[in-house]
């Protein structure tokens, strides 16, 4: 079952990659509006990755920055590579720049945002406890991720949450695959330790 699903998703990914490259070609020929299709296809992944790497503060600006950089550098994109991998690389660069600029402010903003999320909750439903526990766990995962260094966090987010392969991650971050494995091992160990310290049994 797993292998069938895997093969199907691989095929889908390959055909998307081909059509991504076609869309890039069209953009390079001057069809600016075609870029909106690339935006629609990838914005959610970019947004989710950036959120997990940098938190929610100024998320729209970060997403915009990624797509503007992608647009400007479109001519440098090699058609032999995968557009999504290339876009993840830009996302990673934007996250690194953000860390340099806002490292000190980050934790404060995340706390504020978490409070906002809780306040926005509709607690009138029957499964109030379940919703609360979900939010609690999400908050723990978010805090656990922010507790890691950006190097460890990014590998864990890309591999365990965005389901990229270790090879792709090595390409995106430009590190050897052995380093990806090592960072993944340490990131998981640290996150597991954090979650256990918060009373979560995995």
């Amino acid at each position: 079952m797993v292998s069938v699903v895997s093969a199907k998703s691989k095929l889908e990914s390959e055909s998307q990659s081909e059509s991504d490259n076609y869309l890039v070609g069209m953009c390079l020929k001057g069809h600016t509006h075609i870029f909106s299709q690339l935006y629609e296809r990838h914005q959610q992944k970019v947004r989710s990755t950036l959120y997990q790497l940098c938190g929610g503060d100024g998320l729209d600006d970060l997403v915009q920055d990624v797509f503007i950089r992608a647009w400007k550098g479109l001519a440098k994109f090699r058609q032999t590579a995968q557009f999504s991998t290339w876009l993840y690389r830009i996302t990673w660069n934007v996250a690194c720049d953000r860390r340099r600029n806002y490292a000190k402010d980050r934790s404060r903003h995340v706390e504020v945002e978490d409070l906002t999320q809780v306040a926005d909750l509709n607690l009138a439903g029957a499964d109030k406890t379940s919703e609360l526990s979900k939010i609690h766990y999400r908050d723990l995962v978010q805090r656990g991720l922010l507790n890691l260094s950006l190097e460890h966090r990014s590998v864990l987010v890309m591999h365990d949450l965005e389901e990229l392969s270790q090879k792709e991650i090595a390409e995106i971050i430009d590190i050897p695959i052995g380093t990806v494995k090592s960072r993944l091992f340490h990131a998981r160990a640290a996150l597991r330790k954090f979650l256990e310290s918060q009373g979560v049994e995995i």
Binding site: H33, Y39, Q52, V63, Y137, R138, V141, Q142
Partner: peptide
């Protein structure tokens, strides 16, 4: 566990795509 409790990013502002496309133009 991480997949089940993956932090969900807040929704984008409604005009973000239009803003990005205007910037690109």
């Amino acid at each position: 566990f991480l997949k089940q409790n993956q932090p969900i990013s807040p929704p984008a502002s409604t005009n973000l795509q239009a803003k990005v496309m205007a910037e690109l133009a």
